[in-house]
């Protein structure tokens, strides 16, 4: 891996144009003689441009909203993305509910924290005496299971039954090497095999992150959907007088089982007047449709970004 990492860095420097003249010509000679190196450089070029596209697509989409709806109204931007993120990990499950969370759902590759330990028991083993302990270390960055164990014995991930219920899930690393091996080594630096060998000596330093929502949880929703919410906000947000600020206020709130809004919190502030107005209008929203877990209404937190546009200042 060290070699490949080095190659990638070289490719980046080559593409950035930061190589010295002689290093550059040496690199080009090397490239001419190696199909593999040419592939690395070409792929890297495409991926860098691809990254630019990802970024530009976001600004193009944002600009479309401004173009379409004008920017003298506060508008809800990127709600699908931000709201999606807002929901993840914020479902408030009571401990009893936690027993019904399914392993398969917890393994959603993107939804979870970066590294996750999932402990589960088989669906039929209701009594604690007969509990089988499943344990998995998951890298949710792209859904790699490092280690799975059953009653302490290492197994392949596939041998953990789909219906196994999670009894505990901990985020062991807020991204970064928060898992340390007993001898103080950085777990990330170890190979999978090494991790497997040392599993018993792993000490968890991370904070328990609670139980994550399974994907059989539906999102809470404004009655009438996003368009209705957009309209509601348009009609109810008052222009902020004498303000030249433009930008986003992000508000986060709890939707309880009955759809009531409470515990409105400011996640990103713009100015006192904007913040106040955002909180006011969110607090004044009609009842929502609560999120549902396994068909039952539940409590969820929701995040909504409100964008205040430039033209407010003209008014």
């Amino acid at each position: 891996m060290r070699d490949e990492l080095h190659l990638l860095e070289l490719a980046d420097r080559y593409l950035d144009g930061t190589m010295e003249a002689d290093e550059r010509s040496a690199f080009e000679v090397r490239m001419a003689g190696s199909q593999e190196l040419r592939d690395v450089v070409n792929d890297q070029r495409a991926l860098r441009e691809g990254m630019h596209r990802v970024n530009l697509r976001m600004s193009a989409a944002k600009a479309y909203t401004t173009y379409r709806f004008g920017n003298w109204w506060p508008w809800v931007a990127g709600s699908a993305v931000i709201v999606g993120l807002g929901i993840t990990g914020t479902l408030l499950l009571s401990h009893e509910d936690a027993h019904t969370v399914q392993v398969a759902n917890v393994l959603d590759p993107i939804a979870g924290p970066q590294d996750t330990i999932v402990e589960a028991r088989a669906p039929d083993s209701a009594s604690t005496e007969r509990t089988t302990h499943y344990r998995a270390e998951v890298d949710t960055l792209f859904d790699t299971v490092y280690v799975a164990t059953v009653n302490g014995k290492r197994v392949s991930w596939d041998s953990i039954p789909k219906g196994a219920v999670v009894v505990e899930q901990r985020e062991v690393a807020s991204p970064g090497a928060m898992i340390k091996t007993a001898d103080g080594g950085d777990l990330r630096a170890l190979t999978k095999e090494e991790i497997a060998n040392r599993l018993d000596s792993v000490t968890l330093l991370g904070q328990p992150a609670g139980v994550l929502p399974p994907s059989n949880t539906t999102e809470p929703m404004f009655k009438g959907g996003w368009d209705a919410m957009h309209r509601y906000l348009q009609q109810n947000i008052r222009p902020i007088a004498k303000s030249d600020a433009s930008g986003t206020v992000i508000v986060d709130f709890l939707v309880d089982e009955l759809g009531r809004i409470s515990d409105v919190q400011l996640k990103q502030s713009l100015s006192e007047a904007h913040d106040k107005e955002a909180v006011r209008v969110i607090k004044g929203m009609p009842k929502w449709l609560p999120c549902k877990t396994n068909g039952k209404p539940a409590r969820c937190r929701m995040t909504v970004p409100l964008m205040f546009g430039e033209r407010l200042r003209d008014k």
Partner: peptide
């Protein structure tokens, strides 16, 4: 480049 974009977005937000 568009394919590269697709490959990248398939990785997820992190």
């Amino acid at each position: 480049f568009k394919l590269a974009e697709k490959a990248l977005t398939s990785l997820g937000d992190k």
